[in-house]
């Protein structure tokens, strides 16, 4: 099991009121699988991914990464874990607009201390793998949304992570482009053995998954 959550809850406070985004979620993600969290908007999918991705801390409960309790990790250790073991693909791509596609992919490697020639070599290879070998020096504003998401996937793979967290990766894409991105993620899972954990509200997207969890109002169903 690469990731396990145990009785996870997350409560947000908005003034005097409380929003219970997650209510005791326990799940496990097997290494090398394509797992989907399916649920409507507001069901708590993103909150769950943020907790699993160590971007946020739960109100109660625990997240285990390869059996290790992440609540015991310092901020620095959580960052290091994110940098080296987890890749993120966001709905709105979140590429740095001032950097080219190549530089965006090189960035996580630079942060991890990979030497520049190696960064360049690996980034080019990754971009070629996602079909953007001819768009290396384009800035995000010069790329289509589908291309931007593929750059985001290449960036997520930069440091060879064992887990890719994709939060509504097809949310901004038309169905054809969305299908391409899903097949790309599925291919990574099958060919590279990378674990993919994806949140989506799209039932069709879930069909590619090895395992699907349904989330409604912060509670896992069934």
């Amino acid at each position: 099991m690469i990731v396990e959550t145990i009785n996870l809850t997350r409560v947000y406070r908005l003034g005097s009121s409380e929003i219970r985004a997650l209510r005791g979620v326990s799940l496990g993600v097997e290494e090398g699988t394509f797992t989907t969290i399916l649920g409507p908007s507001g069901s708590g999918k993103s909150t769950l991914l943020h907790l699993i991705g160590l971007l946020d801390r739960p109100t109660s409960g625990r997240v285990l990464f390869r059996g290790r309790d992440t609540s015991l990790l310092s901020d620095r250790e959580r960052r290091r874990l994110r940098l080296r073991n987890i890749g993120f693909v966001f709905q709105t791509f979140n590429l740095l607009p001032t950097l080219t596609a190549l530089e965006n992919v090189e960035l996580p490697m630079a942060l991890a201390g990979v030497r520049p020639p190696e960064q360049r070599r690996r980034a080019i290879r990754l971009l070629e793998e996602v079909g953007l070998g001819d768009r290396l020096h384009h800035r995000p504003s010069k790329l289509s949304v589908g291309e931007m998401q593929r750059v985001a996937v290449a960036r997520a793979l930069a440091n060879g992570p064992s887990l890719i967290i994709a939060d509504e990766p097809t949310g901004e894409l038309d169905s054809k482009t969305g299908e391409e991105v899903l097949r790309l993620l599925k291919g990574l899972c099958e060919e590279r053995g990378v674990t993919v954990l994806m949140a989506t509200h799209d039932e069709r997207a879930a069909r590619l998954s090895d395992r699907t969890y349904r989330l409604l109002d912060g509670v896992l169903q069934g």
Binding site: R80, R82, L96, P108
Partner: peptide, 13 residues
């Protein structure tokens, strides 16, 4: 959002 992205991908503080 950009700074948060850097944070998310693990950029040191």
């Amino acid at each position: 959002k950009e700074l948060a992205t850097l944070d998310a991908i693990g950029a040191p503080r």
